Computed example of a mutant assay.
Amino acid sequence: MKDLFERPSGGDAAILVSVDFGENDYQESLEELRQLSLSAGLAVLGKVEGKRSVPDAKLFIGSGKADELAQMMQATESHVAVFNHDLTPSQQRNLERLLQARVVDRTGLILDIFSQRAQTHEGKLQVELAQLEHLSTRLVRGWTHLERQKGGIGVRGGPGETQLELDRRMLRVRVKQLREKLLKLKAQRGMQRRARKRSNVMTVSLVGYTNAGKSTIFNRLTKANIYAADQLFATLDTTTHKIYIEGCGSVVLSDTVGFIKHLPHALVEAFGATLEEAVQADLLLHIVDTASTNRDEQIAQVNKVLHEIGASEVPQILVYNQIDRVGLEPAIGRDEYGRITSLHVSAKTGEGLDFLRAAMAEHYQYVQKQSTEESAFI
């Protein structure tokens, strides 16, 4: 089958397309699309914007804007149109026929980035599963080989089976295989977690919006050397290290994939095994980009995904990172019971990271005290 996510031949110049349907975060969403496109290796040469109450059924943006897009792509010699929305399969096909160029929607773009960044065996399996599930709705295309075939066995399909039917069947088989492999890996993770529970080792997961600085903090705490860069989804695979924290001993620290607005549901499901590190953690360190102008919305988006994956009840500490960019000093925030609820740190300079270590130790001691009191009560 033709790879839906391969880069088009002839270049990677792209035009962004975004429609304002009256959302409050429209400009932030468009800027995020630009960053996503750059992260995918595309050269953004322009953008086409419009306002609508509802999408056009045939071309999403309407015929007038579609013609404007075609003219801009021709003038800039761009080969890719990147939409800041999810397109239906028919809309994507219609646009590709009109533009004679590659059309990628928001979900397809994120999947493309994930396919580039996955490094581990599990990460690659999860990406492939998400891609195939996205592809399954887009198999009805203008292929020339969809005529009815002769009967046969195995890969040739059954009597009179069309190429389209054969492709769909092969896709279903591969999806089933991927799910089975991921279930085995999930079971292995479960055994590892149970072993850590038996040894009374606290598990801590770093979560947060993409590009908030999770990997930099992880590297600071563990002295690891995982890739960190100022781009969306710089790291994809969950990385786990054991560190020593005075006051609680060994701690298993995990750096998870960054979250983003409108994260494709296929990815939330496909990355369930990886995100399960957050679900099963004893403590979540929710890393926030202090310098972001829409940090409150990003916090809400992360909490929304945590709720979707069943991690909303895990104790959480907000870690406001990058205070060096806004001129703030390291600080600790506490609730009315004296428990640490927030921290202000800088992963870049290392300021406030002692507070972060102290917060993990304090949480461990609090949990141990609660456990002791419950045992005494029983």
Rank of each mutant, 00 (worst) to 15 (best):
K2D: 10
D3L: 12
D3G: 07
L4M: 14
G11Q: 13
A13G: 11
V19D: 07
D20E: 11
D20S: 13
F21T: 07
D25W: 08
L30V: 08
L33V: 05
S37Y: 02
L38T: 03
A40Y: 00
A43C: 00
L45Y: 02
G46Y: 02
G46D: 04
K47H: 00
K47L: 03
E49Q: 04
G50F: 00
R52I: 02
S53I: 07
P55S: 04
A57R: 05
K65Q: 05
D67K: 03
D67N: 04
D67M: 03
A70R: 06
A70K: 09
A70Q: 06
A70S: 05
S78Y: 09
N84A: 14
H85V: 07
Q92L: 12
R93A: 14
R97S: 08
Q100K: 11
R106V: 02
I110F: 08
F114V: 08
S115W: 07
S115E: 09
Q119S: 07
E122H: 00
K124H: 00
L125Q: 00
V127T: 01
E133P: 00
H134K: 03
L135N: 02
V140D: 08
G142W: 06
G142S: 09
L146M: 14
I153D: 14
R156C: 12
G157A: 14
L164H: 04
L166R: 15
D167C: 12
R174C: 02
L178I: 11
K184P: 08
L185V: 15
R194P: 11
N200E: 13
T203F: 02
V207P: 00
T210G: 04
F218I: 06
R220V: 10
L221S: 01
T222D: 10
K223W: 09
I226P: 05
A229M: 13
D230K: 08
F233Q: 04
T240Y: 03
I245G: 00
G247V: 03
V257E: 04
F259G: 00
A270G: 04
L275K: 01
V279R: 05
I287C: 03
T290P: 01
N294L: 08
D296C: 08
E297A: 14
V302G: 06
K304S: 12
L306C: 08
G310I: 13
L318V: 10
N321S: 13
N321G: 12
Q322C: 13
I323N: 03
R325H: 13
V326G: 11
G327S: 12
G333E: 15
D335E: 11
D335K: 12
E336C: 12
Y337I: 09
Y337T: 14
R339M: 13
V345C: 09
K348V: 08
E351G: 11
F355D: 13
R357K: 15
A358E: 15
A359Q: 10
M360V: 15
E362T: 09
Y366D: 06
S371E: 14
E373S: 09
A376M: 14
